[in-house]
Design a binder for these strands. Sequence first.
DNA 1: ATGAAAGCGCTAACAA
DNA 2: TTGTTAGCGCTTTCAT
Lengths: 365, 365
Amino acid sequence: MDVERDSDMDSERDSRRRAAAGTAEVKRPATMADVAKLAGVSVPTVSRVLSGAARVSPLKRERVEAAVSALGFRPSAAARILASRRPKAIAVVAGDTSKYGYAETIRGVEAAARAEGFAVAIIVVESPDEEEVGRALRLVLTQAIAGAVVLKFDPPGVRALRRMPPDLPVVALSGVRQTGVRQAVLDEAGAAEELVSHLLRLGHATVHHLPVPPSRREGDGRTTGWRRALRAAGAPVPPPLAATWSPHAARETGRELAAETDVTAVFCGNDELAMGVIRGLADAGRRTPEDVSVVGFDDHPLAALWTPAITTVRQDFFGLGERGFALLMGAVNATSNRRFSSERPEVVMRESTAPPPRPAPRAGH
Amino acid sequence: MDVERDSDMDSERDSRRRAAAGTAEVKRPATMADVAKLAGVSVPTVSRVLSGAARVSPLKRERVEAAVSALGFRPSAAARILASRRPKAIAVVAGDTSKYGYAETIRGVEAAARAEGFAVAIIVVESPDEEEVGRALRLVLTQAIAGAVVLKFDPPGVRALRRMPPDLPVVALSGVRQTGVRQAVLDEAGAAEELVSHLLRLGHATVHHLPVPPSRREGDGRTTGWRRALRAAGAPVPPPLAATWSPHAARETGRELAAETDVTAVFCGNDELAMGVIRGLADAGRRTPEDVSVVGFDDHPLAALWTPAITTVRQDFFGLGERGFALLMGAVNATSNRRFSSERPEVVMRESTAPPPRPAPRAGH
DNA sequence: ATGAAAGCGCTAACAA
DNA sequence: TTGTTAGCGCTTTCAT
């Protein structure tokens, strides 16, 4: 393994820096009192300089700044929060952090938070079990935070949201509207309905649905929109396929679907599932979109690169995260009492959809 | 948009809960003193019950617990940290959070941290600019944290690491060994060398390289391993292609590569780039692996699903994150002075590699 | 504009 | 086992 050459001195350099910072005292980190003494001012004056709140004479300000850098002083976050009662961090509670939608949403929250000087603490809730949710919540509550954003994308998120203490400012992020809770949403149902309607208009007799694991018994917004589109068109509503987050399971599903020649269109709960289905279909010799149309959801960064490029719904997860943070700040600073923010995702037509191979019995209107 | 039915009462329920928690006082959150008074014990006893540190008589313990839940008491994290000097959070500093390797690494850190009761604060450093790095660092340092894990995957990470204060426990995570800093690594160079050697043994005269944007001038571990393999085999070392993180740019590169019939093998800095290259090659009518072999790096979850399934190197980013956290805890608790942890990623053979179309002029050794 | 005094809400020593 | 006494290192009145 290659070793960086320019860094051999790092540890030595560190200890030198450490010694320089120590100045008079032994090893205890410098406090504001140390700075005040060295600068010949009072502690509150140091505080004023550092927080920039009140006006301080240029002379003292200068001496304070000099003392700060001489001592390598860094204020204690804990003391600051305790005294001011204004934590500069929020928590994000999520069932996952790695999957595309989750990761992008968190990225959006983080970017918005960082712009306001807030850090974002991540707490994942792995399962909806009572115990696991409790553990996660306890972890959230032992942090010094101003509020929390809960990703209500899945059962763990739903459970966690339900158990958030009522006096902590909370914002829920999801695809389904819910009253009573401050929340930002993406109108998934509307977009799903539009996407499925498009398939129906292409002439498909119906559209099958492979959902992602739903956050609610009734199914999530995507499933709702799918059902709505079918009903509106008078098309039969086939039972949803077995929900999964795994593209590999979806590939298996695709192979099985290949045998059923009456399925000509599949609406997948997300793009990764669509990729799996397309691959499974191909394994079994059925082509997309010539034999079977397949659509996804989310506009995963690789959806446009897939063969064929996947028709999908672009979800602005990053923006969802940003809106969630904004809502939370409104609550934290009591600067706004907006409780709801919604955006409509946009259908993106690509190559994975086409009319069914043979005119379907009851073609679209 | 559909609205959840069971939640219409939420806000009303909340206010009821709030009122119940308020009991005697107005709206100030309950403190330990309140609990102590109600339970008829001293404040330290309450503390003992809550932290479980010292033994408390069953009677008092019970009364304390009753008081706690009656008041809906939750200890102040800030006060706790200030008094105990033991923050229960760490920071992760990263140039990105969404890309596969980053997201998985963070997930690993978070999981390990959560198991120890630590929260993970994410701070992203968007660019290596002096100013941006300073901003991010300031944000890190205004948090009450026990230490930090820095993802040294890119220039922002490298810069941030360099500027971490010497008295904060820090662990670097990367693919390249560096002395002087506590770090966990993946031996990317070794694995890359193995992968490229495999291509050479297949009969390719040389292997071209499309790097990800490197963290160092000399190139990262992947590039180093590639060069080493070529040199060891006496193969020519072509100039690396233009580095990028974008699969779409890689697609363009693939299209261009299609014109150069002497390139028969391409080693991509990660799987997403490999996907782009394969797609671009296909756009131009060249097939993988019949005409051109393409390999990636990381074992992205979609690499096995791609057509053709991509030969790559499986990187255990999650494990990297876990190891990083463990190293950090060793430093924080002064319980271990291990400073280095390395794992060797594993080559995964799949379908995107084959011998070159025509026997190359100087076939493998 | 500046300093003195008084906490913020908890944990850590210490004594009992 | 329990209570008393001191802080932890800041920010916030409140004088001046």
